[in-house]
Amino acid sequence: MGYPADNGAAIRPRVSIVQRQSIVELLFDQSLVEAHRARALKSGDRSAAFLLQIAADELADRLAVIERHFDEAVELHGYTGQVAERLMQTGKIGHVTRVETVADQPEMIAAPLEHVPLAPGSANLVVSPLSLHLTNDTPGVFIQVRRALAPDGLFLAAIPGAGTLQELREVMLAAESEITGGASPRVIPFVDVREVGGLLQRAGYALPVVDSDSYTVRYDSLFALARDLRAMGMANPLLGRSRTPLPRKVLMRAAELYATRFSDPDGRIRATFTIIYVSGWAPHESQQQPLKPGSAKMRLADALKVKDS
């Protein structure tokens, strides 16, 4: 007790360890994410692959208009591989390597979602279809991808964003609090399109472009939606999830609420999926650059054709 300085010194290393762990708030149980994806892939149920196909077509459209050939492409966690396949059809790619948590075919690499196993400057194109919503350290993945890109390499991503499953989130919350008097997270938080734009810039991408599209999918009931989500490998992977099974009563009530609040006249329910499309380039001198301040050769007033007052 008499040596506060010593005490302080003894405590300090511990504090620094705690801080290092809390830099990134852990949301997702990565081993559970991997298990869900593995189980869904193994089940072979491809009826829920429609979302991936939408993303594949959209990403292919974006790639097709780029006047460039990408020799080495990498698909990061593309699940069924249909995005890689669709992108190959554009004729803009020389060779594609697929990285997935479960790899079962030649020319594939098994790697975790959050660790990009690619050498610096080794890829001309990196594509991430519908998997960056499950990473704890998304900025870290953005940075790892940029390092893996050769100068003037392109990063394309489709990320499920804010708005996705908002109806399900609402009815689960309402049903659970109504019946059990409390609630636990049942639907993961999705990232906002503005945040993704900021992330791209912070990670050092040039010419970043971000936009989003919302899709409404109609189902017979909440149960059909839940079946699709499982087939997508999207079962709840939150670390803060309730560890006790969802009571049947809560589920039934949620289905009832869903049907009353979000159904069409024909009785089918609506589910929203919002996909954020991202593109950014690894910086290169050939890209358009802003001029240095003060280097203008023309007055702004003249360019805008306004009269000085």
Partner: peptide, 19 residues
């Protein structure tokens, strides 16, 4: 030969942990 890894793949890879 099937079991061997493609040398091109090796050029692409780094350790995911240490890079």
């Amino acid at each position: 030969r099937m079991r061997r890894v493609d040398p091109k793949l090796l050029e692409l890879l780094v350790c995911p942990l240490s890079k």
